[in-house]
């Protein structure tokens, strides 16, 4: 008898406690920026594609859900001719983000990706690319890489000396 009353009392007290349940979808949960949700492709500070199509994300992917093809633009920049993520296979492990040497591929706190058709879960480059720099602002791979592109010749990258003059004999 006492035990039953105590239980009822306790249940009653819970009415005044803070509610952990969130009324999703009316109320959106507040997720940290490093939450591993929907994958995006970001742009560099100049607004150009960050992805250089190095294939490291697809190599790191444990479920092999990333496929791409490298292409080279006339200005010397490399970019993915296509970049496809099959989100119906993705396990949101974030390995691709860790592998990315240019901060191009990033995971975002968006997780609302339900679809009725699995085909709709296949995202192409146009679906993945966002306008901003994401979590790593300011990084521009081509500024530090040795590869020459239009507007940045040899020796003009950060921390690079002017090109060697092969015909110079001075020590």
């Amino acid at each position: 008898m006492w035990s039953a009353l105590r239980t009822i009392w306790r249940v009653f007290l819970h009415l005044f406690e803070k509610k952990p349940t969130i009324e999703y979808p009316e109320v959106k949960p507040k997720l940290p920026p490093r939450y591993r949700g929907r994958i995006v492709l970001t742009r560099d500070p100049d607004g150009l594609e960050r992805c250089v199509a190095c294939y490291l994300c697809s190599a790191a992917c444990p479920v092999d859900c990333i496929a791409l093809q490298m292409a080279e633009a006339p200005d010397g920049r490399r970019y993915p001719a296509f970049f496809r993520i099959n989100f119906s296979r993705c396990i949101f492990c974030g390995f691709c983000e860790e592998a990315c040497p240019t901060y191009a591929i990033q995971l975002t706190p968006d997780f609302e990706m339900s679809e009725y058709r699995r085909g709709a879960m296949v995202y192409e480059k146009e679906d993945l690319t966002v306008d901003g720099q994401g979590k790593y602002p300011g990084y521009n791979f081509y500024r530090v890489a040795g590869l020459a592109i239009a507007g940045k010749g040899k020796g003009e990258a950060e921390g690079e000396r002017a090109p060697i003059d092969v015909r110079g004999l001075l020590p």
């Binding site: 294939y55 992917c61 859900c65 990333i66 496929a67 791409l68 099959n86 296949v122």
Partner: peptide, 15 residues
Amino acid sequence: HRATGRTALHADRSV
């Protein structure tokens, strides 16, 4: 054994 993109390469045609 490291080949990539198995579940995405053809996903534009069929998942």
